[in-house]
Every structure is written in structure tokens, then in C-alpha cells.
Design a binder for these strands. Sequence first.
DNA 1: CTGTTAGCGCGTTCAG
DNA 2: CTGAACGCGCTAACAG
Lengths: 340, 340
Amino acid sequence: MKSHQTTIIDIAHELKISKSTVSRALIGHPNVKHTTRMAVLELAEKMDYQRNMHAISLITRKSSTLGVIVPEFTSSYFPEIIIGAQTAATAAGYNIIISQSNESYETEVANTRVMLANQVDGIMISMTKETRNYDHFKVFQRKGIPIVFFNRVCDEMKVPKVVVDDYDGAFKVVEHLLSIGKNKIAHLAGPDSLSMSVKRLSGYLDALKKHQVAINEQWIIPYDLSIPKVSIYVNHLLNLENPPNAIFAINDPTAIEAIQVIKKAGLRIPQDIAVAGFSNDYISSLIEPSLTTMSQPVQKIGIKAIELLIDQIKRDVKDWKAVTHVLKTELIIRNSTLIS
Amino acid sequence: MKSHQTTIIDIAHELKISKSTVSRALIGHPNVKHTTRMAVLELAEKMDYQRNMHAISLITRKSSTLGVIVPEFTSSYFPEIIIGAQTAATAAGYNIIISQSNESYETEVANTRVMLANQVDGIMISMTKETRNYDHFKVFQRKGIPIVFFNRVCDEMKVPKVVVDDYDGAFKVVEHLLSIGKNKIAHLAGPDSLSMSVKRLSGYLDALKKHQVAINEQWIIPYDLSIPKVSIYVNHLLNLENPPNAIFAINDPTAIEAIQVIKKAGLRIPQDIAVAGFSNDYISSLIEPSLTTMSQPVQKIGIKAIELLIDQIKRDVKDWKAVTHVLKTELIIRNSTLIS
DNA sequence: CTGTTAGCGCGTTCAG
DNA sequence: CTGAACGCGCTAACAG
């Protein structure tokens, strides 16, 4: 039993009319008699006819498909961005194909190849933490396929980006920690390959400077975002001769892990040491103590990225602008920094 | 500036050889002189050549793409299944296109149409909680496109399925609750459109029967898995004249929400009321108190579903078997049921 | 309003 | 080992 795809030809044959008429009827072209159109539509439905996107893409040279590449799926952060992206894409008549690079540069490169082979009309991407070569992105530019970065953006690429105000967010978190009387603030930072890390770090530094709090290099620990390593660094901090009384973590998963380590060490949060994160992951309100963090408009990030993509698709290449959209964050104060 | 796709013809033209030779070289066909093959490969690389999957799919009538449809992305459950699925698919040379139905029947139907139009070679799906009509699934069967259900399966469809032993899991959770001295166990159940709910409910009932514990209908509350409603039901339970001293929730998000409500009501967990969930979401070990739950081999579910899909793709349609794969669960005891 | 023709990019015969 | 010709399913010209 051959699995036979219903085609326009089948319908045309059945109805004894030409393929082009069937095609026109299906496509909604005005020049079709009402009765024939209805006949076609009805039969198409009956025969489970589905337009073959591959044939259409081959002709139109576009696929109505957008690619999304994210580094991971495990925190709630990227899934929520994807929800926003999918909503916006669907509304605009685009499908999205999602893939996760699993924080691996190799996989990321492979994923971009898949996207190219599938002739995506555009791509939105958040880099892995280990991506330092950008050739696989530049291919898109050379081919005139729009690319938009979000969250983990690539400074070297002159393309639109969607980010939150990392500097400002970090600045405000640190000010908040200072305001509750914590003046020995450590920072579990990200790798400096990500400009996000750099910006949050400099927000941290500037907030301390502004309030004339001495900066202690020992308290600044850049790490590779691999959660299992957090315990090493946190324990190290706790065992310093002059340990910090607050930790500002680069993101929520890091902060959450830090909290576990601190609790295990028998210290009280926030009395002995306060903790703050960044992103307001779903989980942050549920842990004990609940986590103070900067919330990001996650779904909005996804929506905006798709909008920028579609905007570029509709423009001429010459007309593209490399705007960076900076979305606002909001401080959510919870028990991990609440001194009663 | 027209965005020009590099094609086989471009390469052939450049090298002054025929298109078919280029095609053969690219494809790895043996009958190509080594030197010409190298020349082609080199030039292809240099020109950013990417095979056009649409053209290939049109000819081969297969897309090397598998569809994945999940109801949601917000808990860690489905993302982890997707990680497993993507790993297995990539290893077998398939791409996957993911979409989430957002628990909406309409969206689910739309998603299946997209998958069809994209000529997926197979599809793995977990239904929405409101899906009660299965015509959009049957289309795949009629077209001879393999379909595999996982987690939220459709009993009416005679196709392969991947599930965990819901009955057994629920049974053991309830036995565990009984073993710690809780004999008034409520069950926040799922909608009976999902066979998963039915099975967990019957595991609950049978465990009680086996241990000759009276069943109290008041304590069994089926709901639609919409988390905000959990507080209504839990408060209702707490305010009963004869309130339960344990709650077995259909899944972890429900259990976690229940815990929040109970804490807000000022009751102690597990002393006043114990709570258990199902699935071992990422978050369950981090909340306070940590949640007792049945862990599911999530990544394995994704891997198995893809394997079943590929197995069917390689077989003849007549050769398909509608096996249901039942994976084991494992009880994870945490503080929400730990009486010291 | 409808039919005919060409061709999107590529793999696959069939000839050399 | 290589080239020419055909066709996958469909849309877009061009004729009626």
C-alpha cells in the first residue's frame, strides 16, 4: 500500500478540470467561478488535501518558516520566550522551527545549517555560552536572510537585537542589596564571552562605586554557567576570611543553587547572607526562601524578536537597520533579601 | 540586491561540468573521480552552498523531519522530553519541528495541518486536555504517516504509544502515604478525557481498597489542570468537616500549588497534611518542603517515541504494530511526606 | 473564467 | 566515470 499524497492533479482529474483552475480555487484567486471553487474546496477537504509546502517554497523561494535557536530548555526562561515567539509568528502566518543548541557550539552550527537547508525566511537566536566564532551567523547575512539576536547577543554582528537592560537591572539589584544594609556583596558572574555577563558585571561595579563601597575582587567570580559548579564557588565564598553578606547571581538558576548550598551550610538567608538573582524564573517565587530577582518581560522578548524578523523580511536588504531593542526589567523583592 | 541562493547549477557552471556530476559528488555517489569530487566539495563550501531540502523533499517524498506537538512548555516535563527526542532524532539524521498547542484543541488541529503541509515523515504528540475529537490524528493514518502518542495518549487510536505506568505509580504513591500513617487521602485528579487521569485515579482507588481504607467521594476532585483553580479545591478540602490528612495530586505543578495554598492556610506539611505529586519536575526538589513524587524517565520517553517513529518509517505500513511502551516510574520520597 | 506551458532545485534514470 | 533528459507538486505567466 503506497501512501499516496493527494495532489492538485488528483482533484483536477476527479473534477475533470485543469490543474491551474484547481490551484487558483485553492489559493483564493478571484478568477474562478463560484461553483467550481466550491466543488474544488469540498473535494479537497474530502480527500485530505494539503498543499505541499515544499513545492510552494521551491517556487516562491520562501518557506513562511522562521527558525528559533536557544541554548537550553531546562529553565523556564527560554520556553517562555518561545511561547511569545510562537504566538507572534502564528499571528503573522509564519511557522517556527525550534532547536536547542544545548550550550554546544558544534550543535549550534549544525542547527544553523538545518535552518539554511530548510530555507527559513529568518532566524532568531540566543547564542551558546561557548560561541566565539560567528561565521555560521555571517552566512545568513551573506545570503540576505534576516537574523535577530536576543538575550545572548553577538556584539560583532550588525543586526537587530532584543535585550533587557542588563546594566540597569544589575545596578538596581545591587542598590537594593545595599539598601537593606548588605555592603559586602559578592557577584557570581557569567562568562565574558556573553555581553550580557559583561553588562551585568559593570552594573554591579558601578552601583558599588556610586555608593562608595569598596570593590573586593575576591568576591567576583566569573563562571561558565554550569550549575553543578555553583556549590564550589559558593562554599569558597563562605569560607573566605572575610566572607560576603550578600550574593548577586548572574541568573536565577545560579541563585537558586546558591541558596541550596547556603542552606546546607547552615546559614540563614537573608540574615547571614542575602541572595538575589536575575530573570524571575517561574520557580523563583516557590523556593524557600523565595528569591529576589529582576523580572524580564520574557514573552515580550519573543514577540519583539519575531516582529523585527518579519519587519526585515518585508523590507529590502538595503533597508535593514541594526537597532537594538532594550526592554525594561523590574525588581521583584522576595524573602531572600527581606529583612523583617 | 537579490538574495541569491547558491545552487548546484552555479557550481557546475563555475567548474564547467554537468549538474549531475556535481549532484553526485555532493551526495557521495561512488561514480565520481576523486579530483572532481574534491573540487566540487571545496567550491560548495566556499560558496556557502546548502542543499535545498524543499527540492529534495519534493523528489524523495520525504523530508527527514519529524513533528513534535506538546500541550505546553511551562513545566519542565515536556521540555525534557523534547531534549530526549531531539537527541534521538539528530542521531538518526532527522530534524524535528516542535510546536505547542497551548492546551487548545484548535491550535492542536492547526499544528497538525502545518506538520502535514511540511510533509513530516512522522509525528509524536501529547494531546491537549480538551481534545475529544481525533479526526486530525486519523488523517495521518490515512496518509500512511506514522504517529506516536506519548504521555497523554489517545486510546481510540491504534498506534504506538509511550507512557509510564500511571496506575502502578499512583498505587505506590498512595501506599506510601498510607505507610506514614495518613489514611484520609484526597486526590486532585485530572480530567477524564485523559486516560492518564483515569489510570492514576484507579491506582489511587485500588490502593485504598487493598488496604481496606474507606473511599470518600468528597476527597476526590477531578479538575481541568488549570493551576489557578487549585486553590479553590484545596481550600474546599481543608474546610471540609472531615478534612483529609494527605493529598495526592495528579501532577507536580498541581501539588506545588497545593503546597502554597496549604502553607498560606497556616497548616504544617506533612504533620497536618502530607502532599505528593507525580512526575518529579525539576522544581520539586527545590520547593519548601521538597515534594514527594513519582519520577518519570522523561528523556527516555522522548527517545523511545522517536525510536518508535523511525522504526515505523522504515517498515511497510502493513507491518506497523500498535505496541504501547510502558516505562517504569520511581518513588522519590521527600519532606512533604517525611515524618521525622 | 479556464486551459497550456514553463520552470523552481535537485535526484535519477538512461546513454554514452 | 560523465552528461542529457525527465519529473517531483505547484504557481505564474501567457493564451484563449
